[in-house]
Design a protein around this nucleic acid. Structure first.
Length: 271
DNA sequence: AGTGCGGCCTGTCCGC
DNA sequence: TGCGGACAGGCCGCAC
């Protein structure tokens, strides 16, 4: 499942292969993603150069002179750079074929991802305009979380996963960051001190940054004719470890459901 | 406004 | 061994 670090690693992995390339055509084998792939995509992109690949939250933004391709990998999406004539496998839904006979190929078995086109400033697109600050950007801090959380009764975990509060913190990283900051995931967001939010914000930054650094070793996997990008394995302290001893105190890790999401925490360390 | 939840999908895992 | 069913999971969009 691509979380923010995987999306950032994907961005870095494909950038050298697509930036500056001219689009020859777009091949859509399966338009039924989360939203239908726009029929005008081929017309819009063909003949244009990809000028840059940016990221906002977990959205990838491929910029051209006339508009921006907005791409989300959903739960199961991946991008590879392949030879344009390589045979697509099952779930290879879309190719952006370049003049140099390479192609950017989207694979997404569960089709929770999306491919959209906008001619406006992409950050004003309805999917992006309401997003909170980037967790690795300058506007994200403990003080910011503290200010936004006053009066809020939602759980700390739901608060941290609310993309309007901070963009792109997924289920795994929310559990891990809360564990690192010793904050119980169901504690009301409005009842956490500024100092504890400072620790939490720093934990979010550190955990995401470490994961991106680890992803750097897999960059070459984004370019090959077969196989998938190898998502890196993280060292996880609590996620998926129900029943296992806490690394700090040995108490068995517990799992519960918060906002319909699996959540993991140490009942002794987190409060 | 804040909060909770339904729904979209398929691969994987479990029990029979 | 094969099969059906439950489940996971990002996140939008709706209902209250």
């Amino acid at each position: 499942m691509p979380e923010l670090p995987e999306v950032e690693t994907t961005r870095r992995g494909i950038s050298p292969w697509v930036v500056g390339q001219r689009v020859l055509r777009v091949v859509v084998r399966e338009p039924r993603l989360r939203w239908p792939v726009p029929a005008r995509l081929g017309r819009a992109l063909s003949g244009s150069c990809i000028e840059g690949v940016a990221r906002r939250a977990k959205y990838l933004l491929l910029g051209t002179a006339s508009g921006t391709l907005i791409l989300h990998l959903g739960m199961s999406g991946s991008l590879r750079v392949v030879s344009a004539n390589s045979v697509p496998r099952k779930h290879d839904h879309l190719d952006i074929v370049f003049v140099n006979q390479m192609a950017l190929r989207l694979r997404d078995p569960r089709r929770f991802g999306c491919v959209l086109w906008t001619t406006r400033d992409p950050v004003r697109h309805r999917l992006l305009r309401g997003l909170g600050p980037e967790p690795l950007g300058p506007d994200f801090s403990g003080e910011y979380l503290y200010d936004r959380s006053r009066g809020r009764r939602v759980s700390a975990k739901s608060f941290l996963m609310d993309s309007r509060i901070v963009a792109g913190v997924g289920n795994i990283y929310a559990s891990e960051a809360l564990f690192s900051a010793n904050i119980h995931p169901v504690r009301a967001a409005g009842r956490i001190s500024c100092g504890r939010y400072e620790v939490l914000a720093e934990a979010v930054r550190r955990i995401l940054s470490d994961a991106i650094t680890k992803g750097g070793t897999t960059l070459r996997d984004y370019v090959r004719s077969t196989g998938d990008p190898g998502y890196f394995s993280l060292h996880l302290n609590v996620y998926g470890r129900a029943g296992e001893p806490c690394a700090h105190c040995g108490t068995p890790i517990r799992s519960t459901t918060i906002g319909q999401r699996a959540s993991y925490y140490c009942p002794r360390c987190q409060h």
